[in-house]
């Protein structure tokens, strides 16, 4: 195994070649905000929260998919990145209908946490108030598109872990939305095994257990971590 050494925020890190900057930062306990990333799923670099600066280029790089290089000098929290990340989260709040006060995921939401982390006390971008739908056709779960940030974790967890591929993305641009089956109501999708992994993976209150009310959303992230670990390392104990 080859090892690469690099500097992240002035901290020296040594890590196996082929690792990502995000993994290297985690190893050194340097926090890099993420949103679409979920351990064990194919990274898509879509949310752009984990963008970092690398010395010697003016481009920014997504830490979740950029491999470490020998002698790399990475900055994860420059004023420029802070400014961009705040705008990025504001854009998410402005494009959906995120009403924290009445959301199942209130106080248990990665988007809400990120807003605090990047220092959003208000959105400088006007809210779009899009007209979006809610699908409650599934007997156990619901999806509220108003709260969806299109991280596609549900799409990937269903496809890659459960192997059912119930979810996908339809349309483009601001009309993009998560769709189930052949653009059917969720409850009519026969491929759905009702495993609930999408509920566990969803960072916001978009996919939830029916019956949960404000602030009551339950997620079993450890179940996902267990499954990934079991598959990769054949360790089947929890």
């Amino acid at each position: 195994m080859t090892v690469k050494t690099l500097k992240i925020d002035d901290i020296d890190v040594a890590i196996a070649a082929g690792s990502t900057i995000l993994q290297a930062a985690q190893e050194a306990s340097i926090p890099i905000p993420t949103l679409c990333h979920l351990e064990g799923l194919t990274p898509v670099a879509a949310c752009r929260m984990c963008m970092v600066e690398i010395e010697g280029t003016s481009k920014l790089f997504p830490a979740c998919v950029t491999e470490v290089g020998e002698g790399m000098v990475v900055s994860t929290n420059t004023p420029k990145l802070q400014g961009y990340r705040r705008m990025n989260v504001e854009l998410l709040f402005a494009e959906g209908n995120h009403v924290c006060a009445i959301c199942v995921a209130n106080d248990n939401c990665e988007l809400q946490d990120l807003a605090v982390e990047v220092g959003i006390d208000h959105s400088r971008f006007p809210y779009q108030f899009p007209k979006r739908s809610i699908d409650l056709s599934h007997p156990q779960f619901g999806i509220d598109h108003n709260r969806c940030i299109l991280c596609t974790r549900c799409v990937r967890v269903c496809d890659e872990v459960e192997g059912a591929h119930v979810w996908d993305v339809a349309q483009r641009g601001s009309a993009c939305h998560i769709t189930s089956g052949m653009d059917q109501p969720w409850g009519e999708v026969s491929a759905c095994t009702s495993c609930g992994k999408c509920v566990d993976a969803c960072p916001t209150g978009a996919i939830f257990h029916k019956g949960e009310t404000t602030g009551e959303k339950q997620r079993d992230r450890e179940k996902l971590a267990f499954l990934m670990n079991a598959r990769e390392h054949q360790q089947w104990t929890r």
């Binding site: 709040f93 209908n97 009403v99 006060a101 009445i102 959105s123 108030f129 007209k131 979006r132």
Partner: peptide, 20 residues
């Protein structure tokens, strides 16, 4: 001082905006 979520985000009153 913009006081509370309704002042800051339009919050619950703003949910009527989705109707047009």
């Amino acid at each position: 001082v913009s006081f509370g979520d309704c002042a800051v985000t339009a919050n619950v009153p703003g949910m009527r905006n989705m109707l047009g």
